[in-house]
Design a protein around this nucleic acid. Structure first.
Length: 505
RNA sequence: GGCCCGUUCGUCUAGGGGUUAGGACGCAGGAUUUUCAUUCCUGAAACACGGGUUCGAUUCCCGUACGGGCUACCA
């Protein structure tokens, strides 16, 4: 069997959203499963929508997820160039061939004229029924056409869709899909600016790059009929790739496909990495910056529209490669569920290697101005990992490991603190300060002895220590926390807290 | 509007002519942890509707409804 070759072909029009990442992932998984190649192709044929930096963003995002392409701009490969803007000559060659064979034609109708047509008739389609009324090489005399082109008049090349045919193809996700050719319009193949449209470029490149399988979003399903027609017109039916159209990723409320705005609208990231747009409206927080682990995000994404047929939920990239199959891709649209994504992230944080987490938590803490040593940070991570859903939570829920509590949980202080007992607690603090060997075990033993001796209950003392040290009732085991913080720091915090508790009361 | 695609708990899904319709997230309750979280247990929660076909349909067929996509010299 020939080598499998799959491509991910985004257009550099801005940040790549999560649906695009999933498309890339599925392409990657299928390629790797069969020892094939995963190719990145940049579809930069729309000069009006080109956004500088978008290509780098796409590459960085893929690499963050561990989906580095085998071929692509900057990655090498024998089928380049991998930017469509650098392949213009190819598209010209094949469109010329199509015109010559009578499968395409030149059209001189201006955008304004077409707009006017649609104004008049909103259902207007430039198709077999309309083309003989338009200004093109089918209706104009040959000399006239030659003259216009020679004089540099703006023109496009359009596909001449045959009449009376049924165009059908087998989609690997949806099965047989058919269209009557009279439904199909004469798509523009080559634009007036000399760039190809997606339809032309995608067919030419997939053929030239020997792409065997096309996995893309469902938004392409309708135009696949045109692509099939193009393969036929070019004489490449035999080399036509397999198609698999993925269900769309829907907004959390199910109203339409997920779009750029939805991140801001629903308050969570729908992009892999943050993006600095020209305006605030055009800037987004990424999953990375939100505190997601790439492995977790990838795992979550893989299960959005595909399932292994088993009850396994947690998959490493390697396991995904092994388990993936196109047959198990779902047909229906899928909503982006941030709660599930967070759950995956939490699971990954709990199970991650400490050293791995160390490198990811360090910057989170450093962002707040603290650069503790590895030993401290590792101990901190072990204490906090079950309490963090995102990497940011290490700071949010554990900042008191680095600085004094910003505030005390007043409600709890009022509930647990008795001003009469300040002396008693000062005494306890004093005893703890003097404990030999400041470890969780000995601090605990000393506290227990104190409780016993004074006829107290754990509930009288532990919450007070916790509140004094962390300010909150939420957090890791109190004695472990105290050990990590150290004798002097704990003593300072406790003394200060008891004074403040009296003021609060 | 036209064409194409879809429809199992709130969400992601398994399943498939006869099942107590299974799992996961979330939610509720409980156990463990004298906090929180984790972990474990329990619970509520679904086959869009109408016709067929069939001894029997959630499952197959046809409609309807609903949802989505496309309908650009955007991808």
């Amino acid at each position: 069997m020939e080598k499998m070759r799959l491509r991910f072909a985004p257009s550099p029009t801005g940040a790549l959203h999560i649906g695009g990442v999933r498309t890339a992932l599925y392409n990657y998984l299928l390629a790797k499963k069969h020892g094939g190649a995963f190719i990145l192709r940049i579809e930069d044929t729309d000069q009006g929508r080109f956004v500088p930096g978008a290509e780098d963003y796409i590459k960085e995002a893929l690499e963050w997820f561990g989906l580095a392409p085998d071929e692509g701009p900057g990655y090498g490969g024998a089928h380049g160039p991998y930017r469509q803007s650098e392949r213009k000559a190819l598209y010209h060659k094949y469109t010329a061939q199509l015109v010559e064979n009578g499968r395409a034609y030149y059209a001189f109708d201006t955008p304004e004229e077409l707009a006017a047509q649609r104004e008049e008739n909103p259902a207007f389609k430039y198709d077999a029924g309309a083309r003989m009324r338009m200004k093109n090489s089918l209706t104009l005399a040959e000399e006239e056409v030659g003259r216009r082109i020679k004089e540099g008049e703006a023109h496009v090349v359009r596909l001449k869709v045959p009449t009376g045919e049924t165009v059908s193809f087998r989609d690997q996700v949806r099965g047989q899909v058919s269209f009557d050719s009279y439904e199909l319009d004469d798509k523009v193949l080559l634009k007036a600016d000399g760039m190809p449209t997606y339809h032309m470029a995608n067919v030419v490149d997939d053929y030239l790059m020997e792409i065997t399988h096309v996995i893309r979003g469902e938004e392409w399903l309708s135009s696949t009929a045109h692509h099939v027609l193009l393969y036929q017109a070019l004489g490449w039916e035999g080399q036509m790739p397999e198609f698999a159209h993925l269900p769309l990723i829907l907004r959390p409320d199910g109203k339409g496909k997920l779009s750029k705005r939805d991140g801001a609208r629903f308050g969570f990231p729908v992009f892999p990495l943050s993006w600095e747009g020209k305006t605030e409206e055009d800037s987004f927080t990424g999953m990375r910056e939100f505190g997601f682990l790439p492995e977790a995000a990838l795992n979550f994404l893989a299960l959005l529209g595909w399932n292994p047929g088993t009850e396994q939920e947690i998959f490493s990239r390697e396991e995904l490669v092994a388990a993936f199959s196109v047959e198990r891709i779902n047909k229906s649209g899928t909503r982006f569920d941030i709660d599930k994504a967070k759950w995956f992230n939490q699971q990954y944080i709990i199970k991650a290697d400490t050293d791995y987490l160390l490198e990811r938590v360090r910057p989170v803490i450093a962002a707040h101005g603290y650069e503790p040593g590895d030993a401290f940070l590792k101990a901190f991570i072990e204490l906090m990992r079950e309490r963090a859903v995102t990497l940011d939570d290490f700071w949010e829920n554990g900042y008191f490991f680095f600085e004094e509590p910003r505030a005390y949980d007043e409600k709890m202080v009022r509930k647990r603190w008795d001003p009469e007992r300040k002396g008693l607690f000062d005494e306890l603090a004093g005893q703890l300060h003097l404990v030999n060997n400041y470890t969780a075990g000995s601090i605990k033993a000393q506290t227990e002895a104190f409780i016993d001796e004074r006829g107290l209950k754990f509930g009288d003392v532990l919450p007070i220590l916790r509140l004094g040290v962390a300010g909150t009732m939420k957090g890791p085991a109190i004695f472990e926390m105290m050990e990590l913080l150290g004798r002097e720091e704990v003593d300072r915090r406790l003394r200060k807290a008891f004074v403040q508790f009296n003021e609060l009361k």
